[in-house]
């Protein structure tokens, strides 16, 4: 594996791992806040859609703190208008943290950023689902060819360590299937419909008022977000080649309070379940028996059950989204790369 820049400086101390961050939205600010307290990392560049700031020896701590607190990057003295690709392609750094907005139709421009960084031999951490759902194997091949690490824990299940559990803890196990609740918005809506016996449209409005659902909720309620996450699981765990297009997808828009009530009478809950195994991948509302740990997952919480050969089923539960949770997953990946490449 390619080593990060680790030669000692003039005083004999190991140099920090230089990090380039693309995207300074909610997750980006969360990552900045956490990374500031870690001397083993130095942020040498940050880019948004409007421009970037960069310093080969690391950006000033004060400027980064202000940015993490919400100050606009364009107000920084050394802000330059230009494309993030300029940074990715031409500047020096060790790890690219790609946190730009997901595009599930063509995965751009993030896919190009990631590809370019890997071709240059830079390690990659991302929370961006689009490129991995659509092009996992291309990126994975590039990473292997160029001896880089590609980590993507934050793309699925927020703070839940799904991929590191499979990669590290279950390294010697054959994973038979993965199933779970991977979209907090739909789980919130189904939970509220069940608890209050109120129709989908009413709960959706409530979720929008509370900031849990977007104004255009289709990405969540039609299962697109869940399908993208499942595709990443399908590609990385079960080797699916055209993972996203292979996912059978049904959303929750037709689920009624009546079916939730009928199901409850038979000791079932209805959840939007993502399931993947070597045969295929499916996102759809499903009956879950009360003895299944997934049945008790309510609100915006996520959960995943990994079925293994000898270890049996293993269920992980946690917050599936949020600034701190997603940032924690990104930082965990970054630390993992740092430990494995020094």
């Amino acid at each position: 594996m390619r080593k990060v820049w680790s030669s000692p400086n003039q005083t004999g101390e190991l140099m920090s791992v230089r990090v380039l961050i693309l995207g300074v939205g909610t997750v980006g600010k969360g990552v900045l806040k956490t990374i500031l307290g870690k001397p083993e990392f130095s942020v040498c560049g940050i880019a948004s859609s409007k421009g970037y700031i960069y310093s080969e020896n690391g950006l000033g701590q004060e400027a980064l703190k202000q940015m993490a607190a919400g100050k606009k990057m364009s107000d920084a003295a050394d802000f330059k208008q230009g494309s993030a690709m300029e940074l990715v392609k031409e500047k020096e750094y060790d790890v690219l943290i790609e946190l730009t907005t997901t595009d599930i139709k063509n995965a751009e421009p993030a896919f190009s950023y990631m590809g370019e960084a890997l071709v240059r031999g830079k390690h990659l951490v991302t929370s961006n689902k689009g490129p991995l759902a659509l092009h996992f194997h291309e990126l994975d091949s590039l990473a292997k060819k160029n001896e880089c690490m590609m980590r993507f824990e934050a793309t699925v299940g927020g703070a839940i360590p799904i991929f590191s559990t499979i990669r590290d803890y279950l390294a010697d196990e054959k994973v038979g299937s993965v199933k779970g609740i991977l979209n907090g918005t739909t789980n919130y809506i189904l939970s509220r419909m069940f608890e209050e016996r109120i129709p989908y449209a009413t709960v959706l409005k409530e979720a929008q008022d509370r900031g849990i659902a977007e104004k255009d909720p289709s990405y969540d309620v039609e299962g697109i977000d869940a399908a993208a996450k499942l595709a990443i699981i399908g590609a990385s765990v079960f080797g699916k080649k055209n993972a996203y297009s292979e996912v059978k997808r049904t959303g929750i828009t037709h689920v009624t309070p009546e079916i939730l009530e009928l199901a409850a009478q038979r000791n079932y809950r209805i959840k939007l379940i993502c399931s993947a195994d070597s045969k295929g991948m499916e996102v759809s509302p499903r009956f879950v028996g009360l003895s299944d740990p997934l049945a008790s997952i309510s609100g915006t919480t996520n959960a995943v059950t990994i079925e293994t050969g000898s270890a049996g089923p293993l269920t992980l539960v946690g917050r599936g989204a949020g600034q701190n949770e997603t940032a924690a997953a990104v930082i965990a990946d970054l630390v993992n790369i740092e430990k494995n490449t020094r």
Binding site: T250, V255, F287, V288, D292
Partner: peptide, 8 residues
Amino acid sequence: LLLIKPVS
């Protein structure tokens, strides 16, 4: 029609 299957 929408079909809701059991989880496994």
